[in-house]
Nucleic acid binder design. Structure first.
Lengths: 217, 217
DNA sequence: GTCTATACTTGGATAGAC
DNA sequence: GTCTATCCAAGTATAGAC
């Protein structure tokens, strides 16, 4: 299935060549998903973008679908690594909303979510792709859940709030907003929501903060 | 561009023939979007489903894209007509959540949102399709907004709540949940959210109802 | 092991038959 | 006006060259 493993310190020069080609194809695949969409992300188009022969897609990845999944993996990994650090610093709902807004803007600009949405879209057409994509969304879901729980800290709400379900909703909302933003060519409605969320977060903090300091009786 | 207009009371029998073919193609296109997805919803596949020659797609609709848009129109119209009646009876947030849950389940089963999501997905690949689909989502957004405002009634929140932004979020969430449900082949997480929303709604109703009776000072 | 040239399939669109 | 037979472009995949 995968070709992972000992490629870094190999003695053959052939591995380097292979690796270069693979990397070029993955980058070109990401670019194609962003700019052309799933439907037009064909072996021919991707290979041309990478400057290599079209047949190499099948030699190195077995199928176009596998290459696209590799592209999604690459994006997913880079994204989680970048944002993972940012989010560990978050200790309140207000900060979480701020961070989420920054991530949303960055995702929109970088086209990270576009890649994911395209793959989801393609999943409806390509048999068997659905479960593969679903498995790759799982880390994002867990990322959302742990972020929520961390931001709530030791608030009493932490035990009551169904963080798993909320995380599911957040991911769904995130994907939906991204789709609509692209469709309308306008991110304003989505960004307006972050402003409202910020107000809600500060309202929440104002409601819960006094409860811990004012412990009379 | 379009072939709208005098087809109902025409004297020629040819119009009937044309109408039959067109209708068959639209139905087949809907079915294809649901079961095959945007990518595989080709003129050939759709025509075969409809039992007509593939070239008729281009004769009657000019292009595959136009046929798919006609399919989206048909679904959108039927959906809004069905749900429009249900929602006018809603007079409280609790009832709204109940109705929304029913609509969500029905949409999921009927595949209505699948058709929309497929078209949105295709919009990323097909130049010019985006704005067309966006225009067709507008009624759904307005539908959500008016439903929210109606359910709030004369509550003081009605003036404060940014119903337009909330409606945008609801539509986005709705699309996202539908996508994830399809992907996972499991609607349970989405349905769990409706249960939570129901609790929130009754909490909200309990908080606002006494406020109108207890008007001291 | 890596890559290229080629085979085969499916799709969009139209010229021309009825 | 309605429909069919046919054309050409684009896609996936592989047999065989290096």
């Amino acid at each position: 299935m995968a070709k992972a493993g000992a490629t870094s310190k190999a003695t053959e020069k052939g591995s380097d060549r292979s690796d270069t080609t693979r990397r070029a194809l993955v980058i070109a695949a990401i670019e194609s998903l962003k700019k052309d969409g799933f439907t037009r992300a064909s072996a021919r188009v991707i290979a041309q973008r990478a400057g290599v022969n079209q047949g190499l897609v099948f030699y190195h990845f077995g199928s176009v679908t596998n290459l696209l999944l590799a592209a999604l993996d690459a994006v997913s990994e880079e994204r989680l690594q970048t944002y993972g650090n940012e989010v560990t610093k978050v200790v309140s709902p207000g900060e979480l909303v701020d961070t989420a807004e920054g991530i949303f803007k960055n995702d929109l600009e970088a086209g990270y979510i576009t890649v994911l949405v395209e793959m989801i879209a393609g999943s409806f057409s390509t048999p068997g792709l659905g479960s593969e994509v679903a498995a790759r969304i799982q880390p994002w879901r867990e990322f959302a859940q742990s972020s929520i729980e961390r931001s709530l800290g030791d608030s009493p709400l932490n035990g009551v709030l169904p963080s798993k379900d909320v995380a599911h909703a957040i991911v769904a909302l995130y994907l939906g907003l991204e789709m609509l933003s692209h469709l309308d060519g306008d991110a304003a409605p989505a960004l307006a929501l972050f402003a409202h969320a910020k107000q809600l977060a500060s309202l929440f903090e104002a409601m819960t903060a006094p409860a811990t300091t004012k412990e009379s009786s």
